[in-house]
Design a protein around this nucleic acid. Structure first.
Lengths: 190, 190
DNA sequence: AAAGTACGAATGACTGTTCGTAAGAAAAAG
DNA sequence: CTTTTTCTTACGAACAGTCATTCGTACTTT
């Protein structure tokens, strides 16, 4: 029933440590300590520290991209798509806080060619999002504004969710989701 | 006319490097190279690497706090205060991009007691902001929502400005300021 | 017998910082 | 205007420590 491979355990401990201290400040000895191993033993399960970061970053990138595939493929209006995308971000950010942190803050410590590949993925995602916004403005369902400004204001506001969201705190997840989407959609429309 | 002390030059180079690579990944030798010095020479002008970070973080914290003092002290309604605060964030984030980056991302590498002091300053700022939001909701000028959710959504959306704002790019600063404040205020009201 | 895993020791590279020293600028004294 | 003293700055060498990673070896599970 345990079923978690040691590799997975390492990845999760790494994500947690990257969140708390950052990639550079996390030593392989710290990481090994956290799961009661010695640093040299880690290398029986992973190839390098950089490989850990790469796995975390691209795993999370794919969660966003496959979410985008789902939503953008549906036959619904741009407003519904944007609402679904905002909820996707809230969903991903709250269901696996540690990974998303690493994904948000630590990707810049990737080394080329991974760094370039990651930036490329990100850009693609943003462009698809922006296109949906533009469609919404053309069909009149959104207030015409600069789509870049709208896009980044949107993305930024959900990007830091992991930073202040505490699962045990008062405003429950449902309330948060409802109020954030409401605030942003009201801001975009009319 | 030059007038820039070497200390200031070091601080600015450090802010730039912290933005590009992070505090931990910036070595004193990197930093010295960037301004054509040797690492040991830096210590004629600064006390330690940690002191550089402290200066950058608290300098920027004070810019926000004194802005808050100005705005909160004026005899205007909560809506006008919020508008002014959003514009303050946009102003600070765009006029000194590098410092704000360090301020946003690198403060967690402060060591105690500075770390605690910084967190305290930040919390005070957020509480004052939250109180303005609550006043606005009580007087009916803002839609009643959870003030914490509203606060962080607001702060987050301007927090990442430095990340995508490019002074030379198409949407000019005036347009950006106008559209962001419009989007957020529309989202909060009614 | 074979494969997978954990460990200690060692590697070379890099870290922030200190120190003695030498060169230069500024200030003081002649 | 000189000469001498003081202050500031830059540098190379060295420090003790940490870093990711490798390797040979032993233990455990197939």
């Amino acid at each position: 029933m345990a079923g978690k491979s040691k590799r997975q355990i390492i990845l999760e401990a790494a994500a947690r440590s990257f969140r708390d201290k950052g990639y550079q400040a996390t030593s392989m000895r710290d990481l090994a300590d956290a799961i009661s191993l010695k640093a040299s033993s880690l290398y029986n399960h992973i190839g390098s520290k950089q490989e850990i970061l790469r796995d975390i970053c691209f795993d999370n990138a794919n969660r966003f991209l496959s979410g985008m595939d789902d939503i953008d493929g549906q036959n619904i209006g741009p407003l519904e798509k944007i609402k679904a995308l905002i909820e996707l971000h809230i969903q991903v950010a709250t269901e696996d806080i540690t990974s998303v942190t690493a994904f948000n803050d630590e990707w810049r410590h990737l080394e080329d060619p991974d760094l370039s590949a990651f930036i490329q993925l990100r850009r693609n995602y943003e462009n698809r999002f922006k296109k949906i916004l533009e469609t919404g403005m053309q069909t009149g369902v959104l207030t015409p504004t600069d789509p870049t400004v709208a896009l980044y204001t949107l993305l930024s506001s959900v990007r830091w969710l992991y930073d202040w969201y505490k699962p045990e705190r008062k405003p429950g997840l449902d309330l948060i989701r409802q109020q954030i989407t409401s605030l942003l959609l009201k801001g975009l429309c009319q």
